[in-house]
């Protein structure tokens, strides 16, 4: 008795879900993808130009890479502070999320947003609201790979 009522509810929910999926506007996938590709590509091209510059200055490949990250992160922080990065992100979607500038944007945006709750538990704590999970998973995977190498040599 109870189970059949539950089942009926499930069917109704499923029917409604189908109706919702028919009605819901689809994301403009093609347009979004072109934007993501072009902007993401341009951000990486900018990264390459900066990388080439540092390598030209005689930095090692590894150091040049680090320096490039720092510059890209600085630019993203500046653009976020000026209120431009979210405008870019509205169009570029993943094109401005996937590059390291998107990581920096998430950090800076969270930090700025909580300024009014103070600089310790506002900015200081919230700065990691998006960056935290990213680093946790990045560290976890790399440590596991390191341990595998320790064990299996």
């Amino acid at each position: 008795m109870n189970t059949s009522a539950d089942q009926l509810k499930k069917i109704e929910a499923q029917e409604y879900d189908d109706l919702v999926n028919q009605t819901k506007p689809k994301p403009t996938v093609l347009k979004n993808c072109i934007w993501a590709f072009v902007i993401g590509g341009l951000i990486c091209t900018l990264g390459q130009i900066i990388l080439n510059f540092f390598m030209g200055q005689g930095l090692s490949k590894l150091d040049a890479g680090s320096a490039t990250s720092v510059v890209m992160i600085f630019l993203a922080a500046l653009f976020t502070g000026l209120g431009w990065y979210d405008v870019l992100g509205k169009h570029a979607g993943a094109g401005s999320i996937v590059p390291i500038t998107g990581f920096a944007n998430a950090i800076v945006a969270s930090a700025m947003e909580y300024k009014r709750e103070g600089f310790i538990f506002g900015v200081g704590a919230r700065i990691f609201s998006v960056a935290g999970p990213t680093l946790v998973f990045g560290f976890a995977v790399s440590v596991v790979i390191g341990l595998i190498k320790v064990v299996f040599g």
Binding site: S66, F74, A77, L78, I107, M112, V123
Partner: peptide, 25 residues
């Protein structure tokens, strides 16, 4: 891991903090 990426991580945190001090959303 952290050693290799320390420049990026620290830059993101410091620039994030400085931006929060300088700019309002």
């Amino acid at each position: 891991g952290v050693e290799a990426t320390s420049a990026g991580i620290t830059a993101a945190i410091i620039f994030g903090y400085v931006a929060a001090v300088l700019f309002n959303p």
